[in-house]
Every structure is written in structure tokens, then in C-alpha cells.
Amino acid sequence: MIRPDPGGGNRGIRNRSWRQRESDPGTAPVFSLRGAGVRFGATWALEGVDLEVGAGERVALVGPSGAGKTTLLSLLNGSRRPTAGRVAVLGRDLATVRPSELRHLQRRVGTVHQQHHLVGPLRVVHNVNAGRLGEWSLLEAVRSLISPTDVAAAEAALARVGIAEKLYERTDTLSGGQQQRVALARVLVQRPVAILGDEPISSLDPARAEEVMQLLAGLAGDAGRALVVSLHAVEHALRHCNRLVGLRQGRLVFDAAAAEVTPVMVEELYRIDQSTDEHGEGAA
């Protein structure tokens, strides 16, 4: 089993202590995990993960099915609490912040899901505007449902992803690829400091996949945002990200700059383990 190389890569910040970083939100990394673990029933979906992601980094999470990629991402956007260890966003420990501050932090992290998780019966403009909910009051939110507010921003975001003309269509009439773009536009209007993606391209044809990855990398690059994206296609990871994190059976197997990842590391990561057939069956 490959252990992370303690000396290599862009590991500079790692040497600073947790406490120090937490007290200094200005220079704190966007995400910081310390011994983080998640247990479902008797099994640990994630165990002892240490990870830091700084502004401007483009990190790919790779690993076989069931490795814990989705679970890790859900820790980062605060939708799941770790069973063990700590998770900090922008230097703030999510376990100790007040609910209002948690929402404040969550507003600054945008997530794109493989299944989009859009609301089918709503028009596209509302699904895009849903990215603003964190900054809107309930009243503003309801008013916008009745008559859309800030249409210009929504339209600009849609234009950026190339489907401006779909503004007033019902979302469930759009194709899968177009819906993926709506989800991207939603993240855009949210103006987050970090973008998370959970297999954002696995349902797209190769050309669309390439386009979306470029868009994602571009959106992140625009404003020095951090990008953390789980991918099954290692070649996409190598092409669009500057750092790869390998997960296997809930453990961090490697964490290396894209340039340092070798075919052997990848092969080891996806190796089908004969003795415990637990996670291998869906890897293909």
C-alpha cells in the first residue's frame, strides 16, 4: 500500500500547527481536515484523513467506487459531520461554529453534483437563482419565486456556460448536459471561494466532459477559487488539476502533484483486492 510521501509536493503549510491556522482566518487554507473519519453503522467510509486545500488549488479526488470520495466532499460542504476528527473551512472548525456562521461558511462553498439535484418543475432562472439563497432573506427568496429578481446576473451566468437562451424554460425539459450547465451557473451566481464537484462529468459524452472540465477549471481559475472535484477518469484529473488525492477504502493513499503521479500509483489505487471483495465490484 502506498503511503503519502511526507516530504514531497506542495506540503509547505502542513508543517504549521492546526491551532495556529485556526486563529488566523486571513491566511487559513480553504479546507483543512485533521484525522477526519465518517462511520456508517459498523464500517468506516472515511478514516483518519488529513488534507489541506489552499486558494487557487485544483484538486482531483480519485479512487475506486466506494472509496469515500462523495463522503469526503460532503464533509467539505458541511452537509455531513465527521464521526471523528475535525473539519475546518476558511480556518473555522465546523463542529464549533454557531448555526448562523455555518450557513455563512456554506454559502462560500459551491457544489456541483453528478445528478445535478436541480428542481425539475421550476424554471431555469429559479434554479440558477437558488445559488443566491444564502445571501437572500426568506422574503426575497419567496418574492423571486413569484417574479424572478436579479435576472441579469442569472442570465450572465447562463451565458458564461453557454445556454443563455434557456433562461425561462422548465428545467426538467433540458437535456442532461444542459442541466449540468444550469448547475454550474447556479454555482457561478453563488460566487463561492471554493467549488466542489462530485463526478461532474461522468454522465457526459467525451466532448461535453472535456468542455465541462474546462469550464470548471476556468471558473475556479478566474478568481483564485479552490476546486475539489472527484473524478473517475484519471486522464481528466491529470489534465485539468494540479494535485491528485487518491482514496481507497476510506483511507488517503496518496496526495501528490499531478506531475508526480505515476501509472503504478494509479494501478495500485484501483487494484481489485481478491481477499475482500467488498468494494471492487463496481470499479469498472
Binding site: N77, S79, R103, L105, Q106, R107, G110, G134, A141, V187
Partner: peptide, 8 residues
């Protein structure tokens, strides 16, 4: 998904 991006 909405909750995770800060919606109430």
C-alpha cells in the same frame, strides 16, 4: 444541495 450551499 441547497442546504449545503447555505440556504436556510
Amino acid at each position: 444541495a441547497l442546504r449545503s450551499q447555505g440556504a436556510s
